[in-house]
């Protein structure tokens, strides 16, 4: 690690496991449930949050000494919203197709509490470089869970991955379906996302006993 000191590197690696934003800090749940029926949407969301959280953390960190504490929540929310709206407008003008894919997520990104949570917990008290790393790390940890949940929900729910029919065609009865396999349409519904995240927490905590709550 020539570029990053040990302490800085931990900012990126910690959120992957021991301090994961979704399974430990309980942040950003809404979006983890809303868009994980499809692997592609999970990836798009993960990348958007990576961008917004990285940039937002830097902006808030730069402003941390001039923000009045009484109205800091408004300021934080407005910074995220402005960032997201500008990106949305620019995409609409120059990459219309991409903006259509992202358009549905705009509201979810602004209200994603992972963003507010990291502003409040980290960026307000730390310098821009460390805040940037913290933002990237947390967004990655968030993205990993999103992609795992999206993977299982799409595979078991529609029998596809990224839209490719990996298990065969359910109507033509080819591949696995020839043996009587059926898609579990239930996996596509949001309650199953909750249960899948619950199972991820279960696995994670049985591997790392220190995380168990009493």
């Amino acid at each position: 690690m020539g570029l990053l000191s040990k302490k800085d590197a931990a900012l990126i690696t910690d959120p992957f496991a021991d301090n994961n934003p979704i399974t430990i800090q309980v942040l950003g749940i809404c979006s983890a449930l809303a868009i994980t029926a499809e692997l592609k949407a999970s990836i798009v969301m993960a990348v958007s949050v990576l961008f917004v959280l990285g940039a937002g953390n830097v902006v808030i960190s730069l402003m941390r000494n001039i923000i009045p504490s009484k109205i800091r929540i408004i300021v934080q929310l407005i910074v995220v919203a402005t960032l997201v709206i500008i990106v949305d407008q620019v995409l609409k003008a120059f990459a219309y197709e991409l903006s259509k894919t992202l358009g549905a997520f705009i509201g979810l990104i602004i209200t994603n509490c992972i963003i507010m949570g990291r502003f409040e917990a980290f960026a307000l008290a730390n310098g821009p470089w460390r805040s940037f790393l913290d933002g990237i790390g947390n967004a990655l940890g968030y993205g990993v869970i999103l992609i795992i949940v999206g993977f299982f929900r799409e595979l078991l729910g529609s029998g596809t991955l990224l839209g490719f029919k990996v298990l065969g065609d359910p109507i033509e009865k080819t591949g696995l379906y020839a043996f009587g396999y059926e898609n579990n349409g239930f996996m596509l519904l949001a309650p199953m996302a909750l249960i899948v995240v619950g199972i991820i927490i279960w696995i994670q905590r049985s591997r790392n006993v220190a995380l168990i709550e009493d």
Partner: peptide, 16 residues
Amino acid sequence: PAPLRGLGITFIVTGL
């Protein structure tokens, strides 16, 4: 089960 206590079971119960 101990690893499921707290948050884990809450997720699953909410799902149900």
